[in-house]
Amino acid sequence: MSDDDGLIAQQIPRLRRYARALTGDRSAADDLVQDTLERALSRYHLWRRGSDLRAWLFTIMHNIYVNQARSRARHQHEALEADPGAEALRGRDPDWMELRDLASALARVPEEQRAVLLLVGLEQFTYDEAARVLEIPIGTVMSRLSRGRERLRILIGGDAGVTALKVVK
């Protein structure tokens, strides 16, 4: 294994952790990591030596994820029209028992909020770094973070009754 691969390889477990939490699915997560690694290796010469390799890889992953999410939304839309039964698989309308499960609660946090929540809460990026990874202003990071955290708190049902009512619009 050559050394440049080694540097990137060190980051794979973290990329997998973030991707797993982001997608909520093991094989979708590893697909995302694989796409990220391929793109990163083909663009390695663009990485500024001495800058944060991890942040650079996460930026690449985020861009791929966003692009795939767009095409996923398109396909999902088509699939729903073609096959109403497919919604049961994707619609994810878990009952309250399941909602207490962190992973499924996370899946119900809007994607853009979930990304911030995970970068800051799981991956310990600073707000500034998260802003650069997601290529959004820091104020947007802050507002997505606070909305995402509140959303997740309600979904987990941290303090039952009152907040549960808010979910049922």
Binding site: P13, R14, R16, R17, R20, D30, L37, L122, L152, I156
Partner: peptide, 27 residues
């Protein structure tokens, strides 16, 4: 509860760090 969220996320997903990396993701 926000603080607990971060702990819960790590509890749930840190295990991924210890999983063997699948062959297809190796350099």
């Amino acid at each position: 509860s926000y603080r607990e969220q971060a702990h819960a996320l790590r509890r749930e997903f840190d295990q991924v760090l210890d999983e063997p990396v699948p062959e297809r993701l190796r350099p």
